[in-house]
């Protein structure tokens, strides 16, 4: 269990991380999501005690990172691909890390094998491609066979094969019951791997909820209806108290918040021919963008407003959001 409490980091006048409080629960994959520059990497560096917080604390099973006697056995982390000495071989880069935490040397060969770098174990790591560097970084994270793993943007810059590999690796590690905390700026990537989500924007907590809740609360679902008798259909819907939006481009009606079953039955009752009756779901990517765009707008309009969205007892409720999102929504629609 990792607990962040009021974690704040300022670089001069800029606040990179702003009173961030959340918990990384054991045994699940937690996705740490936010646009570029939201403060994800800074937060992760503070979790590993690499950067000193301006205020607030991070505790790992109740302890500061610095108090862990041999931290690689608790937490393995991949921060960026190129954080090894290029003049040293892959094997030796891992060996010196293993020795510092009294991890047996045979483990070095094991993790190299696990990430598929055995063939280049004796090669200097400066010649490695981004993907190989990423694999070496993951090997170092796995070295101490840790309960908790942290990956900062692991799929960044990887080819599809590499992305698939990392995705499967994370799934495998999660199925062993490990705690995984992985950052990304791609919602679609998270949707495939994470069970829990922590979303930040401009250093502030925007959401801390399960993936299922996020999907339910954030993705706009509606039903699309097409009918040759559209005017009649509209009247019927109106009588039933259902508001429909017509989309001239497709000639369809879009209805929010009513189940498709009910709409179908309603049409049948009035003997209206339907050419389409389909439940639609806005993509998660879109929902995520709407959520983080809100945070940008929120800050632009009201800098320094009290951070009601950021506390642990009161995680931001996406239900609160639409008022702020209206502007973005309008712009998005206008742009289409």
């Amino acid at each position: 269990m990792i607990e962040l409490e009021g974690l704040t980091k300022r670089f001069g006048a800029k606040t990179a991380v702003d009173h961030l409080s959340f918990q990384v629960r054991p045994g699940v994959v937690t996705g740490f999501l936010g646009p570029n520059g939201a403060g994800k990497s800074t937060t992760m560096r503070m979790m590993l005690d690499l950067d000193n917080p301006t205020s607030g604390t991070v505790r790992i099973d109740g302890k500061h990172y610095r108090e862990l006697p041999e931290p690689l056995k608790y937490i393995g982390a991949l921060l960026d691909a190129k954080s090894m000495h290029g003049g040293r071989t892959a094997y030796n880069n891992l060996l010196c890390l293993a020795q510092s935490n009294r991890i047996p040397e045979r483990r070095v060969a094991e993790v190299l094998d696990l990430v598929g770098l055995t063939a280049v174990a004796k090669k200097k790591s400066k010649g490695f491609s981004l993907g190989m560097g990423q694999r070496l970084g993951i090997a170092s994270a796995l070295l101490g066979d840790p309960e908790i793993l942290m990956f900062d943007e692991p799929v960044n810059g990887l080819d599809p094969e590499g992305i698939l590999w990392i995705r499967n690796l994370m799934k495998g590690l999660a199925s062993e019951g490990r705690t995984i905390f992985v950052s990304s700026h791609l919602m679609s990537e998270m949707a495939l791997t994470a069970q829990h989500l922590v979303v930040i924007g401009q250093g502030r907590l925007l959401a801390d909820l399960s993936m299922a809740d996020f999907i339910q609360q954030n993705s706009r679902s509606y039903v699309r209806l097409r009918s040759p008798q559209q005017e009649r259909l509209k009247d019927v819907l109106h009588e039933a108290g259902i508001s429909a939006v017509s989309v001239p481009a497709t000639g369809a009606l879009e209805i929010d918040g009513v189940e498709s079953e009910r709409l179908g039955e309603l049409a049948a009752q009035h003997q209206i021919v339907l050419h389409e009756l389909s439940p639609q779901r806005a993509s998660l990517e879109e929902a995520f963008m709407r959520m983080t765009a809100d945070s940008v707008e929120y800050h632009a309009h009201a800098p320094g407003a009290p951070g009601a969205v950021g506390s642990a007892d009161n995680p931001a409720r996406p239900a609160d959001v639409p008022a702020w999102g209206a502007g973005f929504e309008a712009k998005r629609k206008g742009g289409e």
């Binding site: 590993l48 931290p71 960026d80 954080s83 090894m84 000495h85 290029g86 880069n93 510092s100 170092s140």
Partner: peptide, 10 residues
């Protein structure tokens, strides 16, 4: 080399 972050994490 950037090794410092890996070293200090260890």
């Amino acid at each position: 080399s950037g090794m410092i972050r890996t070293s200090l994490a260890a």
